[in-house]
Design a protein around this nucleic acid. Sequence first.
DNA 1: GCGACAG
DNA 2: ATCTTGTCGC
Length: 287
Amino acid sequence: MDLARPDLRPDPSLSRQEMESLQREIAAAAAFDDDHALDPAAVAVESAASLADGLPPARPDAVANETLPGTGGAVEESGVPTVVGVDQAFRTDRAGDRPDAAVSAAVAFRDGTVVEYASATTPLSIPYIPGLLAFREGEPILAALDALDAEADLLVCDGSGRIHFREAGLATHVGVLCDVPSVGVAKSLLCGEPDEPTAERPAGWRTPIRADDAVTTAEPGTVIGHAFQSRQYPNSRRVNPLYVSPGHRVSAESAVDLVAALCAGYKLPEPTRLADAHAERAKGDAE
DNA sequence: GCGACAG
DNA sequence: ATCTTGTCGC
């Protein structure tokens, strides 16, 4: 898989200042609006996969359709868009403490079912630094996408997109480098302010997240994402909402609509949930 | 100086 | 993210 923007791919030796200015370039290259309206109904996942007996098998015939020569992507090929969830697990060295390598997983969905699994193991370069997550996890994700035969029409990333100090979170970083529509799904809020308090909301509830002073590249008040209650228990309301934001080529509104369509009864959207499980499995296989 | 922040 | 048993509530 060749990158659409190799010029924006970070060099491992960048200083912190250089990483931050690269993020401003990436944000400037990002499109936070809808281009070819990807219909949430076309990517919806109707039933949640059971993980009790391991991961479901990939539907055998589907990937072959996408790898026919001379095709321009999955949608052109079959009319059915491909959604790819990406997530990672971390392997620790035998001494037992420091994370040693990232195990990235990419899981492709079409018609609500898994069509392909891929993974890659990548040595870790820099530690986790809030705001610079993409420099730790971006390359591992690209490696997993490289190992995937399917062409993604939408990437679902585990982390923020536009909800970021410089509007260039992980989902934006990966989406722009690949020039693929992407959304970010985070379990906690990095920056920005919800319009309404998010505690104890019923399933389906959502509220805009607006840029605050921590977002240095946007006018305060700009809608940069949404809090979205993907799941809730009827009586005891203890599930925290997701924080969904556009990565690239998707609006804030479409990003939540797409994620809502990809959720099938669990807190996390199915592509993310299965990518998480596949990353765990791949990590275990290597040990 | 304090705060505060995805995974 | 990761280290981990039980426990409470769907």
